[in-house]
């Protein structure tokens, strides 16, 4: 069986997998990082989004073997070591941008990458378009869009905290 060595949330793992093992299966089943979810089988819902070398990808459409040598960040690795939430996580909480929580990890990981790649700032419409790869059935996206707009202000240093952005 192929062997994969990859760094996940700063920790290096070497794991035996089948050729057909998906990255999401490696994360959930081998490493027991169950925060990354699977919501569809057509690469559309985005519940499985993680970062590979700083870029958001769908871990359900990536073979584990293709992540050999990569650095992967999952939702479990987003908050600071002391548990302080990332501004995007904090904004999702502040703006009630999650309900059942199932799409949330992928949504947050997508949103973090979207904001990071757009330092010029995104309009509401651009945020909506930037979420094309993520489905949420609970919120109607209204509060997700608001949360991302607030988080980008903090991530880009325009405001000091989500609470300040909320005012």
């Amino acid at each position: 069986m192929p062997q994969v060595t990859l760094t996940v949330n700063g920790k290096t793992h070497t794991v035996e997998v089948e050729g057909r093992t998906l990255l999401v299966e490696l994360l959930r089943e081998k490493l027991r990082l169950t925060g990354t979810h699977v919501g569809c089988d057509t690469s559309q819902c985005g519940a499985c989004v993680v970062h590979i070398d700083g870029n958001s990808v769908k871990s359900c459409t990536t073979l584990a073997v293709m992540a050999d040598g990569a650095s992967v960040t999952t939702i479990e690795g987003l908050a600071a070591a002391d548990g302080t939430l990332h501004p995007m996580q904090e904004a999702f909480r502040e703006y009630h941008a999650l309900q059942c929580g199932f799409c949330t990890p992928g949504m947050v990981m997508s949103a973090v990458d979207l904001v990071a790649k757009n330092p010029q700032g995104l309009s509401e419409q651009e945020i909506r378009e930037g979420l094309e790869g993520n489905l949420c059935r609970c919120t109607g996206y209204h509060n997700i869009v608001k949360a991302i707009a607030a988080a980008q202000d903090v991530m880009h240093g325009k405001r000091t905290s989500i609470a300040a952005a909320a005012e």
């Binding site: 959930r28 169950t34 925060g35 909480r93 502040e94 929580g101």
Partner: peptide
Amino acid sequence: VRRKEDVRFLSGRGQYTDDIN
């Protein structure tokens, strides 16, 4: 009131059925 359940969902620590082994 901001939701009590959110931190676990936002941290990937929700416990859904498929997470149970």
